[in-house]
């Protein structure tokens, strides 16, 4: 059982801030939190198309080099690689660090 403080702490964390091994559940997509030059709504749609959608369980499997970027994320049965800049648009609830 999670305490309320834990819930509050884990709210508003973005996928872009997680480290290798972290497990989480996607709670929202928020394009405005990411740095992108794509048209409005485009990044959100691309993320959904790759399975990064509300309710999906994710786990960060690998980190790139240097600066731990990009990241490889296990989403359902697929592994998706993305840059942290775009991963910032994915809001998650941490399940395990």
């Amino acid at each position: 059982m999670r305490t309320e403080t834990e819930m509050a702490m884990s709210a508003g964390v973005s996928l872009g801030a997680l480290r290798k091994g972290a497990q989480a559940e996607i709670i929202a997509l928020d394009e405005s939190a990411a740095v992108t030059t794509l048209d409005v709504g485009e990044l959100e749609r691309r993320l959904i198309e790759m399975g990064l959608v509300e309710g999906a369980r994710i786990e960060i499997l690998h980190e790139g080099f240097p600066r731990r970027d990009p990241i490889a994320v296990l989403v359902g049965d697929s592994t998706i690689a993305l840059r942290r800049a775009e991963a910032n648009a994915v809001m998650v609830r941490r399940l395990k660090d």
């Binding site: 030059t37 990044l43 691309r46 690689a81 840059r83």
Partner: peptide, 11 residues
């Protein structure tokens, strides 16, 4: 210059 294409690719 212009849009930096996101990586977003399946492994």
């Amino acid at each position: 210059t212009g849009a930096r294409e996101p990586l977003l690719m399946e492994l």
